[in-house]
Amino acid sequence: MAASILIVDDNEDILQFLTEVLGDTYDLHLATDGKMAQEIMDYEVVDLIISDIMMPEVDGFELCRLVKSNVEYCHIPVVLLTAQNTYKAHIEGLEVGADIYIQKPFLPDLLELQIANLLSNRLKIKAHFASSPFEDVRVMAHSKMDEAFLKKLDEFIRKNIEDPDLDIDQLAEHMNMSRPTLYRKIKSLSSLSPKNLINITRLKKAVRLISQNEFTMFEIAKMVGYTSQSRFNKNFQRYFKVSPTGYIDSLIKDDDDK
């Protein structure tokens, strides 16, 4: 699935130009001001924002400051475009949390490469979290606000991990967010649905229990909220590319090699 980019500029020619440059690679949402941009963020999963600085009412600096100071959006990387070729403007862009600051005029290839690198690096982090049994969820945080959000979310899931009915409604209530808002936040941060994030957290807990060598596989599956042993085995294999018994065998082999 293509990444989703929100482009914000009050100049229709620039919107058209960026659509031509990026439209074949990404899913684009277009806004002509900061207010419209916020409305789009409230309803769509946005992976990256490209914003001009000079706009009426809410300019690019204000929009970036809003994004980076709001727990619902702060994980979204922001690219600021500006014709202001001054040291002060560059510093202000960095101070409000911009991830990339590009001066106009710019080469389309440069913009495309910087966007691709930024999204690729984040995708690698997400994939690493999902496939690594011992990786902490906070590896996906891009700010202190994200880190606090993920820590609170993870602690709640682990506290209720034996509940097979744990779902997004319970998470949303605990995080004091609407269901759609929480879904967008988790999806954009991790590329996972809340259901899949819960599953991965269950399986990471299972890995730790397996490593303790104190419980049967049936007991472990139940302890992490699975009512079906076969589903537990299938999900374990799906995320960690090895079966639970295969993981046990690897632990035994490692002990024998020591």
Rank of each mutant, 00 (worst) to 15 (best):
D9E: 12
L209G: 01
L113F: 14
L119F: 08
I100F: 10
A206H: 11
V242D: 02
G23W: 01
S250C: 00
Y183G: 08
Y43V: 11
E147W: 02
T201Q: 09
H75C: 13
V137W: 07
K204C: 01
L80G: 01
T82H: 02
F129M: 09
F149D: 04
D99L: 15
V46Y: 02
Q114R: 15
M177Q: 10
S143M: 12
E12Q: 13
R208F: 13
Q237F: 11
H29N: 14
S193R: 10
E95T: 15
E135H: 05
M41G: 03
I186P: 02
T201N: 06
Y26Q: 00
N121W: 14
G60E: 09
M217D: 06
Y183M: 04
D24F: 06
L94R: 15
R231Q: 10
I100P: 08
D254C: 02
T82M: 01
Q38K: 12
I168F: 10
V21I: 11
A31D: 07
E173G: 14
F17R: 08
F215C: 06
E214Y: 08
S143I: 07
A206G: 10
N196D: 14
L6N: 03
N160C: 05
T216Y: 06
N85G: 14
A141L: 05
C64A: 08
L166V: 05
A127P: 05
L209C: 00
N176R: 13
P56A: 08
R184L: 02
F215N: 08
M217G: 09
L107K: 15
F129E: 06
L110C: 07
D42Q: 06
T181D: 15
S193Y: 10
D257C: 00
L153E: 02
L182M: 07
N233E: 09
S178E: 06
L150P: 06
I161C: 03
S120E: 14
A89E: 15
R122D: 09
F17M: 08
L107G: 10
V71R: 08
A141M: 03
Q38T: 09
Q103A: 15
D154G: 08
V46W: 02
M55W: 08
